[in-house]
């Protein structure tokens, strides 16, 4: 089975004031295509650091992160941007939509940063509409984020994460701000995407949510403390 992404002995040090902190102390994980991984752990366990590295928002101090067949650890800032744009779709806990943009415009944002800045044509506009309809917002295309409920905003974020057809979807506590009914809807949507072949890496606090993933990884003190099918 081919790998969507792979981390090999990933380490990350940073300075907290004058004190050096080892946030990651050697993490190796394989993410096969079509995987659905839930990463769990208490705060300070290094899972946020891992997520930032997986999202190509940061470079590891040591180790390798291979996504789309390329090692991210030695890339320039611009190359990291390209990786984020093409290979990774982000879903955040607090939705992170752009407040002054409509639903359609929010889904469009990643298209603006494609390599070579190709024109956003009718084909792209069509795709944006299809995605909006797929997440059930076909009747709210011109609404702005403040006019939408939390669940609806998160659907917009899901549509946005898919617009560039990425290798992996990174979800950072995607249901953390939602009530249980909406949580269920969002999880069903992620599961459906996974069934359609998307690789999903999700960070979560909630065992009930983690249980829905194919496998779970527990982080503690910057290393993987446990792995396996819940409850492991």
């Amino acid at each position: 089975m081919s790998l969507a992404a792979q981390v090999i002995d990933l380490q990350k040090d940073y300075m907290l004031g004058a004190v050096p902190v080892q946030a990651l102390r050697g993490v190796s994980i394989d993410f096969p295509r079509g995987d659905f991984v839930a990463i769990m752990g208490s705060s300070g366990s290094g899972k946020s650091t891992l997520l930032n590295l997986l999202g190509a928002l940061d470079r590891p101090t040591r180790g390798k992160y291979i996504v789309g067949g390329r090692d991210v650890s030695s890339m320039t800032d611009d190359e990291l941007s390209t990786i984020r744009n093409e290979k990774i779709g982000f879903i955040f806990q607090s939705y992170n939509l752009i407040p002054q943009y409509t639903v359609l415009e929010n889904i469009e944002v990643p298209l603006h940063y494609r390599t070579g800045y190709p024109k956003i044509g009718d084909r792209e506009q069509q795709r944006i509409r299809e995605l909006a309809e797929m997440v059930g917002l076909g009747d709210r295309l011109d609404h702005r984020p403040f006019q939408l409920s939390g669940g609806q905003q998160q659907r917009v974020a899901i549509a946005r994460s898919l617009v560039n057809d990425p290798e992996i979807i990174l979800a950072d506590e995607p249901t953390g701000n939602l009530d249980s009914k909406t949580e269920q809807e969002i999880m069903e949507m992620l599961l459906r995407l996974n069934r359609e072949g998307r690789t999903i890496i999700m960070v979560t606090h909630e065992p009930a949510v983690a249980r829905l993933a194919k496998r779970q990884i527990y982080m503690k003190d910057g290393v993987i403390a446990g792995e396996g099918v819940f409850p492991g």
Binding site: G55, T82, R84, N85, F90, V109, R114, N164
Partner: peptide, 16 residues
């Protein structure tokens, strides 16, 4: 600032 963070996460380069 947050909007800038979002755009960077979605692939915006510094130049963008």
């Amino acid at each position: 600032t947050r909007e800038i963070g979002i755009r960077r996460a979605l692939g915006a380069k510094r130049q963008d």
